[in-house]
Nucleic acid binder design. Structure first.
Lengths: 126, 126
DNA sequence: TCGACTCATCGTGAAATGACGATAGGACGG
DNA sequence: CCGTCCTATCGTCATTTCACGATGAGTCGA
């Protein structure tokens, strides 16, 4: 199909369909709270997994931290596996890399990228 | 100062102080909604500014779009200047670049970056 | 089996967010 | 000046988010 003859694909289409916008928004929303940024940084600092002594590094109650961890898990940025009595969390670097990629794809022309197409034509490739 | 002897700087410190976490969280939160992602993409697609016919490209009421624009302006990602009867919005590519930088700094070791320090030591340089 | 420990979930309440219609204000063009 | 157009803001409402304490479910060590 010759896309260039039609209207750009973002015209009034629903906002919560799978694709670039929804995926980027979900990942960004997951990082849209400083507590979750800190959790991610903490998990990345030990590149091995670490269990919920994350709580020791946050000025929040344990239940609140658990909620933030759930948000991070729902976004896919963090995985949790049961390891005996405790739970072992670790960052899914694939997903984090995808987030970085989506953000970078937002602004392809910042530093004179040669193959710099309009961001409207750039969709996700699953 | 020999930082490595002290406790890591993210220990239970307040979450909303200026710095890496707060800045990244604010920018991420601004992009944490698909409508705002679309607005940013739209503004980037015309690299010249464009006024509020953004509304024509979103399935939302004008007042709602205005709210989202306000959120983007508050985050610094978008600037709005009055141009006659209409308002001219454009992306602050500096801020967007900073966002991209903060996200990239989160995960310095993804592709074997040689100077790969712990993200705990990396703070923002204003 | 019985505690001790770790973590998730529930219930709750305050606050923020997202959406809308209606309204107000400012800048042209007549 | 007066209407018109564009945008911001207001008021409202439903929903979500954030935070907490309390409770529950699970796994080990004793």
């Amino acid at each position: 199909m010759s896309r260039s003859h039609e209207q750009p694909p973002l015209d009034r289409t629903p906002l919560d369909e799978p694709g670039f916008e929804r995926d980027l928004a979900r990942l960004a929303k997951a990082l849209g709270h400083p507590a979750r940024v800190r959790i991610l940084r903490f998990l990345l600092s030990r590149d091995t997994c670490m269990c919920g002594d994350i709580v020791q590094h946050l000025p929040l109650a344990q239940s609140t931290v658990s909620q933030h961890l759930k948000a991070l898990k729902d976004s896919g940025l963090v995985q949790g596996t049961i390891a005996g009595p405790r739970v072992c969390y670790c960052v899914d670097r694939q997903v984090l890399g995808r987030f970085r990629d989506l953000v970078g794809r937002l602004q392809p022309c910042l530093e004179g990228d040669p193959d710099c197409r309009s961001p409207l034509d750039q969709e996700v490739e699953p």
